[in-house]
Design a protein around this nucleic acid. Structure first.
Length: 110
DNA sequence: CTGATTTGACCTCT
DNA sequence: AGAGGTCAAATCAG
């Protein structure tokens, strides 16, 4: 992740912005939020990059989270999490084993 | 038929 | 014991 590509850093996504030029959103390791449902997200767009902290009442929209990211995701679980209005879906790589892909991701949606 | 999804049960951690 | 994460059998879809 080259820092030279960074054109914008902000605390929160721009409200109402259409993120149709997005490439991906990834949840970063964040030891400051090891407890609770919050997480630090990195948003990478064609000409924008920002970090934002997800709060419990913030929705990571489906179009944002399920954007094509080069992996084939297979859903393996869904849970209702406490203090969240919406269920959380769990995904992992389709070829987790024969390609050594250990990636998993969690998506909250409406 | 084969691979993906659904969904309740099960496991781990606190 | 409760909450979050994963498993796996049943079911669905191509």
């Amino acid at each position: 992740m080259e820092a030279a590509a960074m054109t914008s850093v902000m605390e929160e996504p721009i409200e109402g912005r259409q993120y149709e030029d997005q490439l991906r959103v990834m949840l970063l390791p964040d030891d400051t939020s090891s407890s609770g449902s919050e997480g630090l997200y990195l948003f990478i767009g064609l000409n924008i990059l920002c970090f934002f902290r997800k709060t419990s009442d913030m929705l990571i929209e489906e179009t944002t989270s399920l954007v094509e990211d080069g992996h084939a995701w297979r859903k393996y679980g869904q849970k209702m999490v406490l203090n969240a209005k919406h269920p959380r879906n769990y995904y992992r790589c389709t070829h987790k084993f024969d390609q050594g892909c250990q990636a998993t991701k969690q998506v909250e949606r409406m």
